[in-house]
Amino acid sequence: MMHGFIPPNRFFPYLTWAEIQSISDPESVVIIQPVGSIEQHGYHLPIIVDSAIGMGVLGKALEKLKPEIPAYSLPCLYYGKSNEHWHFPGTITLSATTLLTILMEVADNLYRSGFRKLVLMNSHGGQPQIMEIAARDIHQKYEDFLVFPLFTWRVPNIASELLTEKELEYGIHAGDAETSLLLSLLPNQVNMEKAVKEYPQGLPENSLLSMEGKLPFAWLTKELTKSGVMGDATVATKEKGDKLLESLSDSWVQLIENIYQFRQPQF
């Protein structure tokens, strides 16, 4: 069961080298590299949350994807850049340099095998910038290699219909959305008796600055929350998680189809 949530026929490591060599049009194949993290998520959630969400959404999307569209998932990179959480036991973080090097070397090997479309599917909010740097550097190195630095949550989804306005703005870590999704994906690993409601503390008032967005400031998790939670985990439900999973995966189906059809703009 090494494929986890990914359909076996869409799991790249289950192919043999001969099967890979015989792919008739590898330049059109969409290769997806899920990137997660191993980091604290409060008292009630396991440290695998981001990785599990990425693999869960991708697996559901690949189940729905038309069989004629060639797309494969690589094994998840479970470790990410999570040093904002490293004051909490259990967090395992790579440096930005290490993660960037891994992504670059994965791309080198895929390119050598003839593939020309790579999705960096990131599920951890602390590292989108690394995906963007990697994508640009890979494409600059191999101009016919199309690379897409994407964030799991940025596709159209129904979160705004399920969460409060406060949760949408401040519930960025182990809150309602992530807890609900884990109740859908890994219910046995969620302890709702330990769920808490804690929003970020001490944020600047009447200021253009914010934790995230266009004008952010650098922060460490311990500066904003005692529990490690930023959001209201107490109101999470499996029903909301199921709806989020369906919504996110539907949009990822459309996105993978768009990537399959994509051609690099040129004069």
Rank of each mutant, 00 (worst) to 15 (best):
I32M: 11
R116F: 11
Q129K: 05
D50G: 03
L62P: 02
K60C: 09
H139Q: 15
L224E: 05
I133C: 07
G231L: 02
P149C: 11
S73Y: 07
L110V: 02
Q254T: 08
K243P: 04
L77F: 12
P149S: 08
V235C: 14
S180C: 12
L245S: 08
I102L: 15
A195T: 00
V49W: 12
P156D: 09
N122C: 09
L74D: 12
V49S: 08
L168R: 05
L224H: 06
A134S: 10
A61E: 09
D250M: 05
P128A: 06
F217L: 10
M211T: 01
K117L: 07
E198M: 03
L224Y: 06
R116G: 06
N109Y: 13
S249V: 01
G202N: 12
T225L: 10
D232M: 02
M1G: 15
P34Y: 11
E257N: 07
A96V: 05
N109Q: 15
Q40F: 03
S251M: 06
S123V: 00
P128K: 01
I53Y: 11
S123P: 02
W219D: 04
K240E: 06
Q201A: 11
E143Q: 13
G171R: 01
L110G: 04
T221H: 12
Y199R: 00
T237E: 13
I53Q: 07
T16W: 13
V253Q: 08
L162S: 06
Q261I: 01
Y199T: 00
S160A: 15
T152W: 10
V155M: 11
P75Q: 08
M230K: 00
P149R: 02
I130E: 07
F88E: 06
N191C: 10
Q127C: 08
K141R: 15
N206F: 14
E27I: 01
K226W: 05
V57M: 09
D50T: 01
E132F: 06
E68N: 14
K194L: 15
V155Y: 09
L244Q: 11
L168M: 15
G213Q: 06
H3I: 01
E257V: 03
A195Q: 04
M192G: 08
E239L: 10
Y72L: 00
I259Q: 09
E246G: 04
L110Q: 03
L77T: 02
L74E: 12
I256T: 04
G125E: 05
E169P: 00
A195E: 04
K214Q: 13
K222P: 00
G42H: 03
E27W: 09
L100I: 00
I133D: 06
T91C: 13
W252C: 04
F88R: 00
G175L: 00
P128L: 04
L203S: 01
P204M: 07
I69G: 09
K222I: 02
R112S: 15
H44M: 08
L77M: 15
S210Q: 08
Y170I: 00
F267I: 04
K64F: 10
E19W: 10
Q129L: 13
A61N: 06
M230H: 01
